[in-house]
Amino acid sequence: MNSVPERIRKSERRAQILMELRWKPHVRVTELAEQFGVSTETIRRDLQEMNEARELDRAHGGASARIPESQPSLDERQTSRVEERERIARFAVRQIADGASLMIDAGASTIALARCLAVADLNLKIVTNSLPVAMILGPAPKIYLRLCPGDLLAPEAAVIGPDTSAYIARHNVDCCFLGASAASDQGISEAIPGFADVKRAMMAQAARSVFLIDHSKLGRNELDRVAGPAPDRAIYTDRLPDPGFAKAWQAGGGELQVIEA
C-alpha cells in the first residue's frame, strides 16, 4: 500500500538532488540524509542508481555534477597538443624565481607544468588541488608541497568544494598557475563543475595569476566565468589569438605571451 507514495518521495528527492547540483559542484551523503530525513544508506542507493543512469558522477562522500559530454576527459586532454602544452610550460618555468611560493590548479596544462618543474632544480613552496601534480612534484627534493583537502572529483583527479576553497584562503603565494576550458573577449571561463570556484580562490590569494591556455581554447566561452583581464593577470599561449581577443585582454591591463615554436 505504501509503494506508490514511496516512489513519489524517491522521485522528488532525486529531482532535488539534481537541482542542487545545478548550483554547486558537489553534494555530500551526510548532508543529503539530514536534509531529506532518510538514512545515509538510502542516499547512497539513490546516488548509485543516479550514477548508473548517468545523471551525476559518484564521488568520495557524495556525488558531483556530471562533466559535460563535450568536455574531453583528462586522459584525452593529456594526449592532445602535447608539444604546445610543453612549450607553454617550459616558458612558464623560466619566469619562476628560486624560492617562490605557488598555487597550481588541476588540468592537463598544469600537469605539463608540474613535469617541467620537477626537473627545474628550484626551491619552491607549492599548494595544489591536483592529485597528479602532487604525485609528480611530491618526490622533488627542493619542493615543499601541500595538497588541498576537499571532495574528490575522480574524472579530473582533483579535489574541489568548500573545504578546498577554505584551505586555499589560509595561504598567500607569489603566483598561481591555472588552466582553463576557454578564453574570449568576454574573459576566461570553465566547463568543469567546481573548477571555477577553486581558480577564483587561488587568484584571491596570489599576487599574480597566470593562465596556461593552448590555442584550441581561444575564442570560446563556457558556462562558469572565472575572470577578466587585470594588470596582475597573464595568459601564456602557443599561437597568436584573434586580434579582437588580444586587444580586449591587453586593454584591460592583462599580459599576453605567445610562445611560438
Rank of each mutant, 00 (worst) to 15 (best):
R200T: 08
K199T: 09
A183W: 01
I192Q: 00
V198N: 03
A180T: 13
E190S: 04
V198C: 04
G194Y: 04
A196Q: 06
A196G: 10
S184V: 12
A201F: 04
A204G: 08
M202W: 05
A191G: 12
A196Y: 03
I192C: 01
F195I: 07
C176W: 03
C176D: 09
I188E: 04
G187K: 09
G187H: 10
A180Y: 07
D185S: 14
C175E: 15
A204L: 07
M202D: 09
S184P: 10
Q186P: 04
R200E: 11
D197R: 10
P193M: 05
E190A: 11
G187T: 13
G194A: 02
G187Q: 09
S184W: 02
P193Y: 04
A196P: 10
G187V: 10
A180C: 12
S184M: 06
F177D: 02
K199F: 00
A191F: 04
A191T: 01
A201T: 09
C175L: 00
G179E: 10
I188Q: 07
G179I: 13
E190G: 08
G187W: 08
I188Y: 01
G194C: 01
A182R: 05
E190C: 05
G194R: 00
D197I: 05
G194E: 08
L178W: 03
A204T: 09
D185R: 14
G194T: 07
L178S: 06
R200Y: 02
S189M: 07
A180Q: 10
G179T: 14
D197L: 09
F195N: 10
S184R: 11
A196F: 01
R200A: 05
F177A: 00
A183V: 14
A182Q: 06
V198F: 02
A204W: 02
A201I: 02
F177V: 08
F195R: 13
G179S: 14
I188H: 11
Q205C: 15
A183H: 07
A196M: 11
A180I: 11
S189K: 05
A196L: 10
F195M: 15
A191L: 02
G194W: 05
D197N: 07
G179R: 12
F195W: 03
Q186L: 13
V198A: 01
L178R: 11
K199E: 14
F177L: 14
A204F: 01
I188S: 03
M203H: 12
G179K: 08
E190I: 12
A196N: 11
M202F: 15
K199W: 00
G194I: 07
F195L: 04
A180G: 08
I188W: 06
A191N: 02
Q205N: 13
E190K: 11
D185V: 04
A204K: 12
G194L: 02
S189P: 09
S181V: 06
D185L: 10
S189L: 07
V198T: 14
I188N: 08
S181Q: 00
C175S: 12
R200Q: 15
Q186M: 13
G187F: 10
A204V: 01
R200H: 07
A183Q: 07
E190W: 03
G187C: 06
I188R: 09
P193K: 02
Q205A: 13
S184G: 05
A196C: 11
A196I: 14
C176T: 14
